[in-house]
Computed example of a mutant assay.
Amino acid sequence: MTIPEDLLDEIRADAAERGLSAYVTEALRCKRDRDRLAELVDWLQEEHGPVTEDEHAAALAELDELDAEHERRRTTGKRNAGEAA
């Protein structure tokens, strides 16, 4: 396997604490999960037809809400961890 050197340097910097192997393993799992999700979406569209614009907009809005909640928990967790120290 060959990885461009500039990309590898960035990944090594991002993965410093947990290590390159753990970073790559997580990335491969994410890719596999996305591929499986794409297969599910294709199957659902074959079974039930394409997603409407309204359904798409509603799904994106829900994802935005989830992202905001994850960010809130992440920043609250960091703040709480700092207070415990």
Score class of each variant (00 low, 15 high):
Leu8Ile: 01
Val41Gln: 10
Arg32Gly: 02
Arg29Lys: 10
Gln45Arg: 15
Ala68Val: 00
Ile11Ser: 01
Asp35Arg: 12
Ala13Ser: 12
Leu8Asp: 11
Ile11Gly: 01
Trp43Val: 08
Cys30Met: 10
Pro50Glu: 13
Val41Asn: 03
Leu44Trp: 05
Ala85Cys: 06
Ala27Met: 15
Glu69Phe: 08
Glu17Phe: 03
Ala22Arg: 12
Ala81Ile: 05
Glu71Gln: 12
Glu10Asp: 11
Leu28His: 06
Asp67Glu: 11
Asp9Ala: 15
Arg72Cys: 04
Leu37Ile: 04
Leu40Lys: 09
Arg29Met: 15
Asp54Ala: 09
Val24Lys: 01
Gln45Asn: 14
Ala81Gln: 09
Val24Trp: 07
Leu63Met: 13
Ser21His: 09
Arg36Pro: 02
Gly49Lys: 10
His56Leu: 12
Glu46Cys: 07
Leu28Tyr: 02
Leu37His: 12
Asp54Gln: 09
Arg34Cys: 10
Leu8Cys: 03
Thr75Asn: 04
Lys31Tyr: 12
Glu62Val: 03
Leu60Glu: 07
Leu44Lys: 06
Leu20Gln: 01
Gly77Ile: 00
Lys78Phe: 11
Ala57Lys: 03
Glu46Lys: 08
Lys31Val: 12
Arg79Cys: 05
Thr76Asp: 15
Ala13Gln: 08
His56Tyr: 08
Asp33Cys: 09
Glu46Ile: 11
Gly77Pro: 00
Asp9Gln: 12
Glu17Lys: 04
Lys78Trp: 03
Gly82Ala: 08
Ala59Thr: 00
Ala58Phe: 02
Asp14Thr: 03
Ala81Val: 05
Arg32Cys: 06
Ala22Lys: 10
His48Arg: 14
Glu39Tyr: 10
